[in-house]
């Protein structure tokens, strides 16, 4: 591997880690805010969750100013743990302009737009442990209708689940953030998740697709803190084009 390639790998991994660690810090902050409030004797006894609007929107604004690909951030109470203000406290960026908007989802199981988040990938994968999880890319058709990945973390108090904290990242914006770094790598290099779904790539063929693995011809670099890997072909000249699936 050439020195320039090594630099590109290093800077790409650093860029991914910078974005995702900022976003996971934002999730931790939401986690702490809710936990602190529900543990305090005054708020905790009411069975209500604190109003997160100010803290979430401030965090989102700051991240967006820093060029983060973050799309939304917030807390969703577990459906079992219902209380009077248990609507999702989730804010997201508007498509045009810089405004923030609170996510409104259908709460009536009889309606077409019912958002049964207990069936969503980000909910199901988060329940098992306290670690930070990240979904495969998906079209969030019940929520914001964008192609995103969701990072999420469960919140428990004394062994019982209160809800999920999380953040959405627009896949296309993450690709844009990584573009200059990944273009410096041989084609086709891709950042993929543990299902092989492509998160970012320098090859149009693999955009939105899954990356078939060819272990003999490729090198893998783990992305710190996430189940993602950077895959770079090891034989530059002889690299055969593999079909995306």
């Amino acid at each position: 591997m050439s020195a320039s390639e090594r630099d590109a790998v290093r800077s790409l991994l650093k860029e991914v880690a910078t974005h995702t660690s900022r976003i996971s810090a934002a999730i931790d902050q939401v986690h702490e805010t809710v936990l602190e409030a529900v543990s305090s004797p005054t708020v905790g006894s009411t069975g209500q969750f604190p109003d997160l609007q100010e803290s979430v929107c401030t965090t989102l604004d700051t991240l967006v100013m820093e060029g983060s690909p973050i799309y939304g951030l917030g807390f969703i109470a577990d459906p079992v743990h219902t209380s009077s203000n248990s609507d999702p406290q989730w804010w997201y960026r508007e498509q045009n302009g810089r405004g923030l908007r609170r996510l409104v989802v259908g709460t009536d199981p009889g309606r077409l737009d019912f958002y049964d988040y207990s069936e969503t990938p980000w909910y199901l994968t988060t329940l098992n442990d306290d670690s930070l999880h990240v979904t495969s890319p998906y079209v969030d058709y019940c929520g914001t209708n964008s192609y995103i990945v969701t990072m999420s973390r469960r919140m428990q108090v004394q062994g019982s689940l209160l809800g999920i904290c999380g953040a959405d990242i627009v896949v296309g914006e993450l690709q844009a953030c990584l573009q200059t770094h990944i273009l410096a790598l041989p084609r086709p290099s891709s950042v993929v998740d543990d299902d092989g779904a492509v998160i970012a790539t320098n090859s149009a063929e693999f955009l939105g697709a899954n990356r078939p693995l060819d272990l003999l011809r490729e090198r893998e670099y783990p992305v710190p803190g996430l189940p993602w890997r950077l895959i770079v072909p090891s034989v530059r000249k002889a690299s055969r084009s593999k079909t995306a699936t």
Partner: peptide, 19 residues
Amino acid sequence: LVRADCRFHIEVAAAARSE
């Protein structure tokens, strides 16, 4: 019926990863 039918077909399209 309409809801369940719509849901399935929309889910298929979402699984295609295209907004």
